[in-house]
Design a protein around this nucleic acid. Sequence first.
DNA 1: CCCGCGGATGGGAACCATTGTCAAATTGAC
DNA 2: GTCAATTTGACAATGGTTCCCATCCGCGGG
Lengths: 129, 129
Amino acid sequence: MVSTPRNTRQRRAVAAILEDLDGFASAQEIHDLLRHRGESVGLSTVYRNLQALSDSAEIDALRNDDGETLYRQCSTGHHHHLVCRACGRTVEVAGPTVERWADSIAAEHGFVDVAHTLEIFGTCGNCAS
Amino acid sequence: MVSTPRNTRQRRAVAAILEDLDGFASAQEIHDLLRHRGESVGLSTVYRNLQALSDSAEIDALRNDDGETLYRQCSTGHHHHLVCRACGRTVEVAGPTVERWADSIAAEHGFVDVAHTLEIFGTCGNCAS
DNA sequence: CCCGCGGATGGGAACCATTGTCAAATTGAC
DNA sequence: GTCAATTTGACAATGGTTCCCATCCGCGGG
Ligand SMILES: [Zn+2]
Ligand SMILES: [Zn+2]
Ligand SMILES: [Zn+2]
Ligand SMILES: [Zn+2]
């Protein structure tokens, strides 16, 4: 019996921030943004809600080079990301060829329960100048 | 003026372990293996040597789902990995098409200084049964 | 509208991989 | 062998994230 998450002020605030952001952001960045917005939310709560949203596939998560987990509200469906290291600006990209390639490689070597990670990092035009 | 690294017992021991392993392993796992082998090396030293080897591109590094950094001595040249989550067994894979695809996507959106990460995780035949 | 259950919150402690510190040991050139 | 410079290692510190638990509050029932 799975219970529906409660509609709390904190949950709404986190969701609203994600709605407004267009790039990936860390839990701590989101926590700061909430404070500046006056909608203060405990750091633990921010982590919990982000994780819950990520688990239910409502938002995407990825790890940057520093080992931080970044979150973003993306379009639905499987896709990958072109992310600016400096500002977080993100372009969603689809690579059907890559998907098939990865699956066939794995099958070829007898691997099951297969998943893949693919992200492209760079510096966007804005940040480069 | 870059000085050549010294040929210490510890550095040799770490290199020897990497030589013998065929899958990815964490710094702590390697530290344990060294102890069991009788060639005890300080944990900090294991970390330092692995990082140095990784920086000089003599070994590959990747992060698993738990956020740990894993290391492996691979063949030279750019490639990706099919890794067993359970035992670390690894198959090196090349994907020239993916390389070109990633670069063109990035260029298309005006990103520079581009890099990509691509790993395939699964459960290998052995571990599945 | 009022109660009461159980999920949600938050502040601080705990975790844990990794990095920093620095005195002591080791290496390698001369 | 001597000596400066690098490396080591035990331990402390870091930092993102998770855990703990007393308190709070959303929400369904009465
Ligand atoms: Zn996405
Ligand atoms: Zn994909
Ligand atoms: Zn490799
Ligand atoms: Zn590649």
